[in-house]
Design a binder for these strands. Structure first.
Lengths: 127, 127
DNA sequence: TAAACACTTGAACAATTATTCATATGTTTA
DNA sequence: TAAACATATGAATAATTGTTCAAGTGTTTA
């Protein structure tokens, strides 16, 4: 993650030597349409969330069944605590939701947009 | 990343208390179709690669223009060295390629499958 | 109502990853 | 051929993240 100081330093650099960049026209053009810092980070965040093999397994499992934490622990081969931490992350990003039934919390997917993204990724893995 | 010892421990646990898991039927069913460890990690790896805002910017930029390292450094607002490290990662994963033209290396995308994935992610960000 | 159960949570630790810095490589230009 | 340039790279550091462990919450059951 980039620090504020760097951005300032870099803006300072720009003023001193604008002619330094090889393809100013292309750079300007790309800069015009470039994603904002917020969008870039939001996009990176989604991918980051899917970028862990335990969470990949959790999502794959939930694409097929509503499941409780200990089911997911068994399926993914991780501890219930680890799974619970992952589910918290997925929950705060609104990718999963849950309902309580007695002692169990049943988790399911809460974002079919991400499901589409996930399937697109799957296709890549299967060539 | 999960350690080998854990997997062994957990298989040991299974033998001792199989009846422990709440929804054996669902669990069995999901286990049957579950991604292999390799596929899960490969899938996680793709997402992980896209899960960094600097790389997001690099890919977005390259979707629009073939660009050299110092252009990308300017566009993303990171140092040339940092960009170069990111490009190496993208290169080893065959997401980008480059051609040399004099002193410059021009980078471009090398995997339109990932481009599709990226665009799918973009749609998510733009709601 | 106490014990058992399913799960959550915070803190600590370990592993991974991004960035920087210094140096190295390959190319062009003076 | 030396200097300048564009980029790559390895090592070091800093930040982030995944997992574990111990303790906590809410629910059911004996």
């Amino acid at each position: 993650m980039k620090k504020e100081e760097n951005r300032i330093q870099e803006e300072f650099d720009n003023e001193l030597c604008e002619a330094h960049f090889i393809h100013e026209d292309k750079v300007m053009e790309v800069k015009k349409i470039m994603l904002t810092e917020d969008k870039s980070q939001a996009l990176a965040q989604i991918f980051k969330t899917l970028g862990d093999s335990t969470r990949v397994k959790i999502i794959f499992a939930l694409m097929n069944h509503e499941l409780c934490v200990c089911d997911l622990a068994e399926i993914t081969g991780s501890s219930e605590s680890a799974v619970s931490h992952h589910l918290r992350l997925l929950r705060t990003q609104k990718l999963v939701k849950y309902r309580r039934e007695g002692k169990n919390l049943f988790y399911s997917l809460d974002d079919h947009h991400v499901e589409k993204l996930f399937k697109e990724g799957l296709e890549h893995v299967y060539e």
